[in-house]
């Protein structure tokens, strides 16, 4: 086994274990940290595929920004673990059975026949000065600019939706409007009510 293969299996093993930890860990912070590990290992796998730019983007964007934010949220929210875990073991066995059967069925149809190594020959090695960042940039802003723009619009929708769904004008905000304070009249604030004096009952309450 050459070095490349050994490295692949090493990273793949860590990736699978980390992914399993994400859904089995009792503590949500541990789950989030395992997800960080899973992303990081996936980036290493992409490096093996010579997709350097994507690997770095994954580490920078997902590990660096998204997951850190995620960790903040997990730590800030008071998540009730017991309720979150409710029914996990009850569902685990049927879910495993269903998933197992589905994987088996797909394997029967597809197997290794159509996507085996023999079917997918190794692509020719790239030139030494080949940059996949450059290659990506070239098609991203020419051939795929339409898809790129729509993806940007989808992000805009996400912003509008998030603000629309969460922004509330707080009712308990306290602030002063000087013009209204000045224009207040006695009649607006004080109401004189004439109450009948009820002498006979005055001491009954005490």
């Amino acid at each position: 086994m050459d070095f490349e293969k050994a490295a692949f299996y090493f990273f793949a093993l860590i990736l699978v274990l980390a992914a399993l930890r994400v859904i089995t860990a009792r503590n949500p912070v541990h789950s989030a940290l395992s997800l960080v590990l899973a992303f990081f290992t996936a980036a290493a796998l992409w490096l093996l595929l010579e997709a350097e730019f994507l690997a770095i983007a994954l580490v920078l964007v997902y590990v660096g920004a998204v997951m850190v934010l995620f960790l903040f949220v997990v730590m800030m929210l008071d998540i009730n673990l017991d309720r979150l875990r409710e029914g996990y073991w009850d569902y685990l066995v049927p879910a495993l059975v269903v998933a197992g059967v589905m994987v088996l069925e797909m394997a029967v149809i597809l197997g290794g026949r159509y996507f085996s190594l023999a079917q997918m020959p190794k692509p020719p090695a790239a030139d030494p000065d080949y940059s996949n960042t450059r290659a990506l940039g070239e098609v991203l802003y020419t051939e795929y600019v339409y898809a790129f723009e729509i993806a940007a619009v989808i992000l805009l929708v996400a912003i509008v939706a998030a603000i629309g769904l969460t922004l509330r004008k707080r009712k308990d905000n306290k602030y002063q409007v000087p013009s209204r304070q000045i224009s207040a009249r006695r009649a607006n604030r004080v109401r004189l009510v004439s109450m009948p004096s009820d002498k006979g009952d005055s001491g009954a309450a005490s």
Partner: peptide
Amino acid sequence: YLGLELLSLSLYA
């Protein structure tokens, strides 16, 4: 696919 997602996400919101 992107058009479908744009439509669906707007509708969910």
